[in-house]
Amino acid sequence: MGYFKDIFNGGLSLIEGMGVTARRLFRPLVTVQYPRKKIPLSSAYRGHIELKIFGESGTHKCIVCLNCEKTCPSGVIRVQGEKLKEKGPKTLTSYVIDFSRCSLCGLCVEICPTSTLKYSREYELVGETWADCKIDLLARLARQVEEMEAEKKTQGIAA
C-alpha cells in the first residue's frame, strides 16, 4: 500500500511544481537582450574615475596634492604636475590610471580635497592589450570638453 501512496504523493508534488512553472509562463520576460537593449545604470554606479569638469572654468580643479595616489591601495594612479606659476598650486600635466589593477573602492574620490574626481559611467571596457587598460584622464577630459562644445554649437544652431 505504501508503494502506491508514494507514487501518488510523488505525482501530486510534481504536478504542484509544474503548476508553479506553468504560472511563470504568463509572466513578463525578465531578461534583456543586452547589446541591443541596455538597462539604465544606478545613480551610484562606480565606474573608473575621471576628472570632473567645473562649469565656471570649463576644466578640472586638480592641484596635484597626490592624496589620491597615496591613498590608493593598489597603486593605480600616477599623477604628475609642474610648477608653472610662482605662487599657488602645481599644474596637472599627466593623470594616468591603470584600470587593470583598480578595485573600484572609491577611496580616491572620497579623499580628493577639491572634489575634482568622480566616477565615470563607462562599463564597456574591453581591451586587447595591457596598454588598453591604461586610461589617460587628461586626454579623456579634453575629449569630453570638445564634445560638450560641439553639442553647444549644434544647440546654438537649433535655437
Partner: peptide
C-alpha cells in the same frame, strides 16, 4: 535547473537595490 533561474531572478532584485545605494553589485565597500 528551474529553481536556479527563479532564484537568480529574485537575487537580481537585491543586487539592484544594493547597487542603488553602494554603486556596486558584489564588492560593495
Amino acid at each position: 535547473i528551474t529553481p536556479f533561474l527563479y532564484a537568480f531572478d529574485d537575487r537580481e532584485q537585491i543586487l539592484d537595490i544594493l547597487d542603488a545605494i553602494s554603486g556596486s553589485r558584489l564588492t560593495y565597500s
